[in-house]
Amino acid sequence: MLFARGAWLLVVAVIAGCAVLVGPSAPGGASDQSRAAARDAVPNRVMTWNLCNPCDESNVDRAAEIAKYAPQVIAVQEACQNDVARIREYLENLHGLKYHVEYGTVLRKWSRCGGAPWNPGAYGQALLSAAPMTDFEKVEYADGGSEDRGYMAVTTRVDGRAVRVFNTHLAERRQEEIRADQASALAKVVARHKRTIVLGDFNAVPDAPELSPMWALAEDADPQCHPSPELDCEPTTEWQSKFDYIFLRGYAPLTHHVRQSAYSDHYVVYADLKAK
């Protein structure tokens, strides 16, 4: 019996020693040895993506989707703060892309983000930037519609120039009057800055009247897209509507791309920009 007990203790010691040597397994807790080699984001590339929520998607897959394009700035909507934190972790550990992050939480909701019933997860927008972000601002619209909505803004660098970057998510479809008030409030703030990039899900097609304040200030990164009766705008959703925009002031688009994604009902929208 003493021999058997000694043999068992030896086995336990060997297993524990192996665990120490191997370290945490990726992707849940990638060790320093298993991290991807550091790589740079594309310094003039910006991206917007509605993550889809509630949707049972893996944050590992979401991070891999973002890493395909490696933008300097990423705006995400319908985002749980815990999910964004994990996406950021996977971007660094699995893809070598390091980002700063700011959260534009507008509500805490268990049905969106889980958590304890008395402490539900934070939900809203987020901005990730390879360059540092300053002058963070978060604003909730006076009327969010059927769910709280808002915008967030930071100052960062794109194409080597300082720029005010906004990320927003307007009220859901069939709430045109509420979206009109939200777009008007956002446009008044955007108008204060000569160089801005406004990213987000506006829940409205380009010729919708509620987007008029934004079109009066800025152009979409898609050079073929204008608020005219003869639209030539590439759809950004599974239901073949353009709801996702990259509005520009003080920048010109070099390229514009819409990529379907298996991980959301919205497509990935990104553009390479040149400062004017």
Rank of each mutant, 00 (worst) to 15 (best):
D83M: 07
H193Y: 15
E65R: 11
C52K: 05
S58M: 11
Y69E: 13
A41V: 13
Q240D: 13
R173L: 15
Q77V: 05
P117G: 04
A218N: 07
L199F: 01
L107E: 12
Y69F: 15
R45H: 04
H169E: 02
E92C: 08
L91M: 10
E177W: 14
L97K: 06
R195I: 13
A208N: 10
R174V: 15
T168P: 00
A130C: 03
Y263H: 14
D159L: 06
E147L: 10
V84G: 00
S129Y: 08
V46S: 01
A183G: 07
V20S: 04
P235V: 11
Y151W: 14
F247N: 00
G144R: 07
A271R: 02
R161I: 09
A70H: 04
E172C: 13
V139D: 00
A13H: 08
S34C: 05
M214F: 09
K68A: 13
C80M: 06
L248W: 10
A221K: 03
Q33V: 12
D220A: 09
T156W: 06
Y263F: 15
A64S: 11
G145Q: 09
W49P: 00
D272S: 05
Q77S: 03
T236E: 01
A116T: 12
K276I: 15
H169W: 04
A275R: 07
P132G: 08
A63W: 09
I246F: 01
L9C: 12
A41G: 05
H266L: 03
I66E: 04
T105H: 02
V163H: 04
Q77P: 00
E92Q: 15
A67I: 14
A204R: 06
A75S: 04
V46K: 00
G250F: 08
E137A: 11
Q72L: 06
E230N: 11
A7Q: 10
